[in-house]
Design a protein around this nucleic acid. Structure first.
Length: 584
DNA sequence: CATTATGACGCT
DNA sequence: AGCGTCAT
């Protein structure tokens, strides 16, 4: 049997709609749509069956499903926004906990109050915190289940979005000695219809685990999810699509099954090929196959859709386009190494946006910025700072960069960034607001119909082994007491931040100074920062720590990030064609 | 057809 | 640093 990886992609079914169904106890047969202003952003399966789609308006839905349940996402209104104390995460946690544990009467009341009643977008901002909360619950539960059943370190979990994650089960199936796994429960789809797929005991074991996991989430928290199981992330994601809703789709590790999958999947369905990149690939492959046009219109679109992964893979690499286009193609086929994450994995950026429709709200000139957007800006800044503070409490980190976005066209977003105020800085909100307003006032693009602000570039706040920072840095981290101020002062001129946890690229090739924690070059005899001589103890302690860090990482996953795109690792490895990669 | 709010990441 | 692409 192949020694390839086994990756599962788990995807919560129509997540926001499910959240609302659970919160308000909506009967499962009813069509449900979650709205953001006039358009739906999530629809459940009964609604989809009636032909209801994303962005559809309520009136149009009623034409095909008169019993449609229409729930609007939570909003913060300009008048009542943010009564809670900034940074008091517990308050908000219990707020959402309450939202999801209403009594029957309260649910009925909330349902009748909310169903079909939409807030006004001219005085409110959409807020999806309610769903982030459930996402956190589910991710935590998944972690508990996997720790129990697979064991800590026996799997790798990667958060891909608020409602999606990858689980690498390769190690689990390789180690485990379970002889006859219990039968699979729930809906199972075998791609390619391979009757003998169960001969692959490891694959069967993984499939069994995933089906138990789905069961667990269903019984403990009441949410259904779809899953795909395959040899890499790309194929797992594709498989999951076939399992929807509430099912598991397995792509067996046989060349026959893979052939079927490649033949029956349009290249445009592959993650990463839905846009311009996919179009370029299609164009080139069509040319290669002797297609002579037309190169636009319905007929052309149809031709593109008909291009399977196999057809693309059968092309010589140079046919697929420029180096850039081929890289996209290659990455899509290859999938990606799984990165470690932890439950509630920290995002790499925290963003808040607000769009304005209609001339009344538009901001046409510099003078409009304060008068028309002032209140919005204040609200968004409050929201952002609050989320950054909550994040800081949870993840013990702070952000370096503040970025303001604005545009007069949803497709071309302008941005301007600056330094984010330090954690202990006074008047954070005021300084962010000031930059926000100044940036908009300097805009060369009018009218401004959409504005946003984000925080990113996070760094750890003295986690684990501690860090030290320059005086100039306003991050407000309490200085560790175990090194001398004078030595830190020396560092200050040189750099702004040193972490005592070395980057992976340095692991094993540097030594850690006990006196000031600086990571020195491997061959340095004296600490570059504090000039302390290197000792035998330094070496030993460092070796131990590296080992510990390695173990912890395996067990817990320490990397911050979700990595759904092109990673460094993958640039090194280039499969020439789809065939080369899959070996079929 | 585009539509919202929110992410990740690539290119220069 | 700023903008473009892709996803949902």
């Amino acid at each position: 049997m192949p020694s390839s990886r086994l990756i599962a992609l788990l995807d919560l079914d129509c997540f926001y709609a499910q959240c609302e169904s659970v919160r308000l106890d909506i009967p499962s047969h009813l069509p449900v749509a979650v709205f953001q202003w006039s358009g739906a952003i999530a629809v459940n399966y009964p609604a989809r069956a009636a032909g209801i789609k994303r962005f559809m308006k309520l009136e149009d839905m009623k034409k095909v499903a008169s019993d449609i349940v229409a729930i609007h996402v939570e909003v913060e209104t300009l008048s009542s926004a943010f009564i809670e104390e900034a940074g008091d995460e517990d308050v908000r946690k219990s707020k959402y906990k309450k939202q999801y544990s209403l009594t029957c009467e309260e649910k009925a009341l909330a349902f009748s109050r909310e169903n079909g009643h939409f807030p006004s977008r001219t005085s409110a901002q959409a807020n999806i915190e309610r769903y982030r909360y459930v996402s956190g619950l589910i991710f935590s539960r998944l972690r508990i289940f996997l720790d129990e059943v697979v064991g800590q370190g026996g799997y790798k979990l990667e958060k891909a979005s608020i409602d999606e994650l990858y689980v690498d089960l390769t190690e689990y199936v390789n180690k485990s000695r379970e002889s006859t796994p219990p039968p699979l429960t729930g809906k199972v789809v075998i791609i390619g219809g391979d009757k003998n797929w169960t001969d692959d005991a490891q694959c069967l074991m993984a499939a069994n685990l995933v089906s138990r996991l789905r069961e667990d989430i269903k019984t403990t928290l009441g949410y259904t999810l779809s899953a795909g199981l395959a040899i890499n992330k790309t194929m797992a994601k594709l498989a999951a699509g076939r399992g929807k809703p509430d099912g598991l789709a397995v792509l067996p590790r046989s060349s026959e099954a893979m052939k079927v999958a490649l033949e029956t999947t349009s290249v445009l369905e592959v993650r990463g090929y839905g846009g311009k990149g996919g179009k370029i690939v299609c164009e080139n492959v069509l040319k290669f196959r002797g297609y002579n046009g037309p190169w636009e219109g319905d007929e052309y679109e149809e031709e593109c859709k008909k291009l399977s992964m196999k057809m693309c893979g059968d092309c010589p690499a140079d046919v697929l386009g420029s180096k850039h286009d081929w890289r996209l193609m290659n990455n899509g086929e290859e999938g990606e190494e799984v990165q470690h994450t932890k439950p509630g994995a920290p995002t790499k950026s925290i963003t808040t946006f607000k769009s304005f429709v209609g001339d009344k709200e538009s901001c046409h000139r510099k003078d409009d910025v304060k008068s028309k957007l002032g209140a919005w800006i204040e609200m968004m800044v409050k929201s952002l700072v609050r989320r950054v503070l909550d994040d800081s409490k949870r993840n013990n980190r702070w952000c370096k960069t503040l970025c303001v976005y604005f545009c007069n066209d949803v497709k071309a977003v302008k941005s301007k960034s600056t330094k984010f105020p330090g954690k202990s800085a006074q008047g954070k909100e005021e300084s962010v607001t000031k930059f926000f307003i100044k940036t908009l006032e300097e805009s060369t693009v009018w009218p401004i119909i959409r504005v946003g602000v984000s925080a990113d570039n996070f760094f750890p706040l003295g986690a684990g082994l501690g860090i030290f920072l320059s005086k100039e840095n306003e991050a407000g981290v309490t200085k560790p007491t175990d090194f001398k101020t004078t030595k830190v002062a020396k560092v200050v001129e040189k750099s702004t931040l040193f972490a005592t946890v070395p980057p992976k690229s340095l692991a094993g090739i540097c030594w850690n100074c006990k006196a000031c924690t600086y990571e020195n070059e491997a061959d340095a005899k004296v600490c570059e920062i504090c000039k302390t001589s290197r000792s035998v103890e330094d070496d030993e302690e460092y070796a131990k720590r590296l080992q510990k860090q390695f173990n912890d990482e395996e067990a817990e996953g320490v990397a911050i990030g979700v990595g759904v795109g092109v990673g460094e690792k993958r640039k090194a490895k280039k499969a020439k064609t789809v065939k080369d990669f899959f070996g079929s």
